[in-house]
């Protein structure tokens, strides 16, 4: 029973992180109509930047998260402006440039991974953060880093929700996601909003990277698996749905850890793909019945 609870706690924590990355992917999908295949590398960059801020400049952990978010957000805006803008425009307006965009995302992910490798090397870097002793509830130990991750994720989600639903800029972002031409006619600066969406999504991914740092180590190749699992989370929750992304992340995290515990530990990374493929084949609109936006 304790073992099961332990696995569940770990699954939920890691699932929250998957959910945060999936949130960014969903946000980009709703805003730009593209699936961003280099998002895992953005997440990896965020983790490394957090490490640099925390250990080279000795800023406190929470401030390191914030700094990494800002820098990665700016990096994302630059990437979108310089490279993706041409492709999303090529399809006439901001439509799916289909295959070109997917291939471009792949190329970008390889480039970003190589740049990170050239800067920080291939070794796995530990990211020690001292949170103090774990909480003890009965027989179960609950490390404080898990609690911190969950709290940070809640704050991020809440912040994003308030931003999208309560502020004027959030309204503009939602209008752009709905229909770019009409949003443009209403006097919204559509290109700026697109950049903003991309920047916010990248900043969220960076936060996930810094949050997962103390649990696992930080290394150049961490982005790829995370991308796949975040995709699985986004698909399970219904692509393009923001609450669905978090729910899907939780589901993937729990499913994966229970599978690793009770079926076979070495096949751990396959379970997320299995879930992804099953959901895609039988319920492409996601498990929770959210009407996924299918755009031509």
């Amino acid at each position: 029973m304790e073992a099961l609870l332990g696995f569940l706690i770990f699954g939920v924590t890691i699932g929250v992180v998957y959910g945060i990355v999936a949130l960014g992917i969903s946000l980009i999908y709703t805003g730009l109509d593209i699936v961003h295949f280099a998002h895992g590398e953005i997440y990896m960059f965020g983790a490394f930047l957090g490490l640099v801020f925390a250990h080279q400049y000795n800023v406190p952990y929470w401030l390191a998260i914030l700094c990494a978010m800002i820098v990665t957000g700016l990096l994302g805006i630059v990437i979108e402006r310089v490279f993706y803008r041409r492709l999303t425009r090529a399809g006439g307006g901001y439509t799916v440039a289909g295959m070109g965009m997917i291939i471009c995302g792949f190329g970008m992910s390889v480039v970003l991974q190589n740049i990170a490798f050239l800067i920080w090397g291939a070794d796995a870097e530990p990211f020690p953060v001292n949170f103090g002793m774990p909480y003890q509830i009965g027989e179960i130990f609950l490390p404080k880093s898990y609690v911190a991750t969950a709290v940070a994720a809640l704050v991020l989600m809440g912040g994003l929700h308030v931003f999208l639903k309560k502020t004027k800029i959030g309204l503009a972002v939602r209008a752009v996601a709905q229909n770019k031409d009409i949003a443009f006619l209403m006097g919204i600066n559509v290109p700026l909003m697109i950049s903003l969406i991309f920047g916010v999504a990248c900043a969220i991914a960076a936060a996930a990277g810094v949050l997962i740092g103390p649990m696992q180590s930080v290394q150049v190749e961490m982005g790829y698996l995370m991308l796949m699992k975040a995709f699985a989370a986004a698909v399970v929750g219904g692509f393009g749905s923001l609450p669905g992304a978090i729910l899907g992340g939780l589901l993937v995290g729990i499913f994966e850890n229970l599978g690793a515990a009770y079926i076979s530990g070495s096949h751990k990374d396959i379970y997320a793909f299995l879930l992804l493929i099953l959901v895609l084949m039988f319920r492409p609109q996601g498990l929770f019945g959210v009407e996924a936006k299918v755009k031509a």
Partner: peptide, 19 residues
């Protein structure tokens, strides 16, 4: 599935073969 969704599914299948 079409477009990006199909890319995701095939990417998952290909990578699970390797793992």
């Amino acid at each position: 599935l079409e477009g990006a969704y199909l890319a995701l599914a095939t990417l998952g299948l290909g990578e699970s073969v390797r793992i």
